[in-house]
């Protein structure tokens, strides 16, 4: 922790950045912190309760955050994939940011969860994560971490759903999506949902009905899942933020597996890597045309 605080202090005092975007303790666990004074750097913390993906705050459209000036951001490996995505998609310039990578051995589901990380409370998305630290970082802090171990696992849950026949699957998702009230927490916490004007907010024509009925909700969630194909960084924020408890991460995880099998592509924190949706190869699968 001291390593992180000392680094943050130095960055502010040397005027390399105007603010540090990291984590601090609140009454109810970890929360995002915006620190502009070197004297406040001792508030910075990092452990398995720092679940939030702070890359969501880096969109150039967050006017009040852009006003802070040049930022240093604390990122886990999954968060780094989002920063890489923002750079790759021309939302950020690498040189405009200082990236403080933190070593991570998995996080809990909610920032207010237990002080001990264990196989019961670890976020399912962390189980199977192979990256202990970001490659895309200017600094790396924290102790070496071991690979996360957990009981819940997204692939297991997905294979259970895949065993259902199409009618059963439709009925499962109809029931889950009927709980959506379109608060758009999923979109707002998503670092890759940075569109100036989301298709769901367009009214002429209204491509996606804003009413939270079955038709509107299916249109919204399936469109979002497809728009994140090959882009979703699997940070799980949409699912954590959903007040209706819809397992949105499963949709994105399924799409990511399809992208992996058809295009041999996995989202990485290398901004120079071309994406399936942003590139063209002669040997791309195209049987759907013929």
């Amino acid at each position: 922790m001291q390593e992180l605080r000392d680094l943050a202090k130095k960055l502010l005092l040397d005027k390399q950045v105007n603010a540090i975007l990291g984590y601090e303790w609140d009454r109810r666990g970890a929360r995002p912190a915006f620190i502009t004074e070197a004297g406040d750097c001792d508030r910075l913390v990092f452990d398995h309760r720092c679940v939030q993906n702070l890359a969501a705050y880096l969109s150039p459209r967050r006017a009040n955050i852009a006003q802070l000036g040049r930022l240093a951001v604390v990122i886990k490996a999954c968060d780094a994939r989002a920063v890489a995505g923002l750079i790759r998609e021309n939302q950020l310039k690498r040189e405009d940011l200082v990236l403080i990578g933190v070593r991570c051995g998995g996080v809990v589901v909610n920032p207010s969860d237990s002080e001990q990380l264990n196989a019961e409370n670890i976020a399912p998305r962390c189980v199977g994560c192979e990256q202990r630290e970001p490659t895309l970082a200017d600094h790396l802090v924290g102790e070496t971490q071991s690979a996360p171990v957990g009981k819940a696992n997204r692939d297991l849950r997905l294979s259970e759903i895949e065993k259902l026949n199409p009618e059963e699957r439709l009925s499962l998702w109809t029931s889950l999506l009927s709980q959506c009230t379109r608060c758009y927490a999923c979109r707002q916490v998503c670092p890759m949902c940075f569109c100036e004007r989301c298709i769901a907010d367009k009214t002429q024509p209204a491509w996606i009905e804003s009413s939270p009925h079955s038709r509107g909700n299916f249109s919204w969630h399936l469109t979002r899942a497809l728009h994140l194909a090959g882009r979703c960084v699997d940070c799980g924020e949409c699912e954590r933020a959903c007040p209706a408890g819809i397992p949105l991460g499963l949709l994105n995880h399924k799409v990511a597996r399809i992208v992996a099998s058809r295009y041999g592509y996995a989202v990485s924190d290398d901004p120079s890597r071309e994406t399936p949706i942003g590139s063209y190869r002669l040997d791309d699968e195209q049987e759907f045309i013929a």
């Binding site: 915006f34 969501a56 009040n64 955050i65 608060c183 927490a185 707002q188 916490v189 933020a241 007040p243």
Partner: peptide, 17 residues
């Protein structure tokens, strides 16, 4: 206002619950 609002993502979760 400006301090507190930095954290807010601007979704409707608070209003809808």
């Amino acid at each position: 206002w400006s301090d507190v609002a930095l954290r807010c993502h601007g979704c409707g979760a608070c209003a809808f619950v």
